[in-house]
């Protein structure tokens, strides 16, 4: 990973009122790289993604995207630069059709004059044939897995340079999780950088190149995933269940 990073986060802090939820977080994502952030519930993973994306104000620190510092930029601006978030709650347009949801994914490019959303939608349908079958159906009536596919597909419509994924495995059956993760690792080949936040540490560490462990607002560990997956602390806290027994 010698190229300049797509995303560089330096000393990022976020607070809700007086309560700090993220404390001096640092991380980097390069083009074509999958970086994962794992950690328990309430550790501040979603907060971090929202602050990078501009959905939440940061209290200090710096977020650079494509080598430029984006200080206090709003979500809309970051989307325009090529950063897309697939949020934990999916945030679909439930009363609109699958096709309209996808179309709106291309809104930024359309506004700039691009009219190739038809082709992009074709490519998204190639990746998620299920969505093509359901194209006229209302997004609110889809199953959990289909919703996640639509959320990822909608983000791909913007032709992102960096994709932020917040818990893509949330509430999905194992087979569907497998499918989604297979697609994520394929996306990597198209040169998209991916920042993957997951609770499902085992799956995340398998497809990612580099990983971070976030605990109570702080980056506790980091390293290439092969090394991280062998770290006893990671194994004990996130990969195993059998060893943790009666300890509190």
């Amino acid at each position: 990973m010698t190229s300049t990073p797509l995303l560089e986060v330096k000393d990022l802090c976020v607070a809700y009122g007086k309560v700090e939820a993220l404390h001096h977080a640092n991380l980097k994502v390069a083009p074509g790289q999958i970086v994962t952030v794992i950690g328990p519930n309430g550790a501040g993973k979603t907060t971090m993604l929202c602050a990078i994306m501009g959905l939440l104000p940061k209290s200090s620190g710096e977020v650079s995207f494509l080598g430029r510092s984006e200080d206090g930029a709003a979500v809309e601006h970051m989307v325009g630069l090529g950063m897309n978030l697939v949020p934990e709650k999916r945030e679909l347009f439930g009363e609109m059709s699958v096709e309209d949801n996808l179309l709106l994914g291309a809104f930024v490019n359309y506004r700039r004059g691009a009219r190739d959303h038809g082709e992009t939608m074709g490519r998204v349908f190639d990746i998620f044939p299920r969505l093509k079958e359901r194209r006229a159906q209302q997004a609110g009536t889809l199953s959990g897995g289909e919703r996640q596919m639509l959320a990822v597909g909608r983000a791909l419509m913007a032709k992102p340079k960096l994709l932020l994924l917040d818990e893509p495995s949330l509430g999905l059956a194992p087979l569907v999780v497998k499918e989604i993760f297979r697609i994520i690792s394929e996306l990597k080949r198209t040169g998209v950088g991916i920042l993957l936040v997951e609770q499902n540490a085992r799956a995340a560490l398998q497809i990612a190149d580099y990983g971070y462990v976030l605990e109570t607002g702080e980056m506790a560990l980091e390293g290439p995933t092969k090394i991280l997956a062998g770290d006893p602390r990671v194994i004990e806290s996130y990969l195993g269940l059998g060893t943790c027994g009666v300890r509190v």
């Binding site: 509430g171 194992p174 993760f181 085992r202 799956a203 398998q206 497809i207 269940l241 027994g245």
Partner: peptide
Amino acid sequence: EFGQRIAEGLPEEVQRDPAVLEAYLGGVE
């Protein structure tokens, strides 16, 4: 898991239950 009860018991039993291991660790082989 998926809105259903997949196991119930003492903590030690549950930790060894294959269905639970699958739910927590499963997904990608």
